[in-house]
Design a protein around this nucleic acid. Structure first.
Lengths: 162, 162
DNA sequence: GGCAAATGGTTAACTATTAAACGAATTGAG
DNA sequence: CTCAATTCGTTTAATAGTTAACCATTTGCC
C-alpha cells in the first residue's frame, strides 16, 4: 500500500525467504505427511493406528526387560500421560496387559497378551511389502542416502547435550 | 515355544526385518519428530502452534485469491472439519476473519486481520534463524540433497494419479 | 416454479498429543 | 520411626487430526 517506487526489495516483506534450509524443513514435513497418509489406512486394516503399532512394537522389543510405562514413554519419545491413555485403549482391546510390580507397587509392567503378539506377527507378514511401497520412488542407493542424511539431521539435535 | 533345534532363522520370527526401506521410513518419522520438538517451543513464544502458523501462512499466500475454507483445507492437505475448528480458534484470537461470499452464501472467504499479518511479519524476522538452527547438522550441499530425495519420495505418491 | 442432487461449512465422536495438577507408594534425612 | 521429598501413574484441559452425520445454500432438471 505505502512504500512507493524507490523500494529495492519486491514483495519480500510479505513472504518469508525461500532458502535451502526452509526447503529442507518443508520437505521433511511433507515427506512425513505422505508416509502418514499411506500408513494410516494400512494399519486400519488391522484395527489399530500407527502410534498403537509403535507402542506394541516397542513393548515387544523390550519384553525381556519388563518395561514400565515410563520406560515405554522414554523409548517412544512421548509424554507419560500419553502412554497411560494409549495403554488404556490397548488394554481394553486385549492387546496388552499391565501388571503391578510387587517389589514397587508404584510401577506397572507392560506385557503383550497372546492376542497382541499374534496381531504383530500378522502385521509382520505384510509389513515389508508395505514399506517397499512407500519408498518405491527411490532406488536402493537413494534410500540409503536419504536415511543417512535424515539421521544426521536428527542426531545433530538428540546427541548434542553431552 | 515350539519350533525346536532345527530351525534355521534365529529370532526373526519375533522381529520384523531390518531393511533399507524400513530404515528410511523410520528415519523420516524420527526426523519429523526432531523438527516438531524444535518448532513447537519456538512458535509458542509467539502464542501460536505450528499448524496455526501453517494456516496463517497459506491464508496470506493466497490472499489475492480470496480463498474459501475448502481451498485452504486442500492446500494444507487436511480435512475440512479440521479447518473449521482451527479457524474458529484463530478468529477468536483475532488473527483471521471469515467473510461470507455475497454471490454464494454457502462459501466463506478467509482473510488475515491486520493483527494476523503483523504477527506473521514478526515471525518472519526470526524465522530464517530458526530454520538454520534446525538444519545446522547438514552442509548446504547436504541440505539440497536431502530436499531432493524427500521431494522425490513425496511426489512419487502425490503425482501418480495421472 | 419446485424439488432432488450437489456443494460448503459445521457438529459430534474418536484418537493422539501436550502440560499441569493430583494421588499413591517409596525413599531418605533426622 | 516419622515426615518431607521424590517417583510413578492418572486425570484434566487444551490443540490437532480423522470420519460420519448434519444443515444451509445453490444448481439443474422437469
Amino acid at each position: 500500500m505505502s512504500n512507493p517506487a524507490n523500494t529495492p526489495q519486491p514483495d519480500l516483506r510479505d513472504e518469508y525467504p525461500q532458502t535451502p534450509a526452509r526447503d529442507t524443513v518443508v520437505a521433511v514435513v511433507r515427506g512425513y505427511g505422505a508416509v502418514q497418509r499411506l500408513m494410516e489406512p494400512y494399519f486400519a486394516t488391522f484395527g489399530i493406528t500407527p502410534p498403537q503399532f509403535q507402542l506394541l512394537t516397542v513393548a515387544n522389543r523390550l519384553k525381556n526387560d519388563s518395561p514400565t510405562q515410563r520406560r515405554l514413554a522414554r523409548e517412544l519419545y512421548v509424554s507419560f500421560p500419553n502412554v497411560t491413555v494409549m495403554l488404556g485403549r490397548l488394554e481394553e482391546a486385549g492387546l496388552i496387559c499391565r501388571r503391578t510390580n510387587p517389589d514397587d507397587r508404584r510401577e506397572k509392567f507392560v506385557e503383550l497378551t497372546r492376542s497382541g503378539l499374534l496381531l504383530l506377527r500378522r502385521i509382520w507378514k505384510k509389513h515389508q511389502r508395505q514399506l517397499d511401497r512407500i519408498v518405491i520412488g527411490l532406488t536402493a542407493a537413494e534410500q540409503v542416502q536419504l536415511t543417512g542424511l535424515l539421521n544426521k539431521l536428527t542426531t545433530s539435535h538428540t546427541d548434542e547435550p553431552g
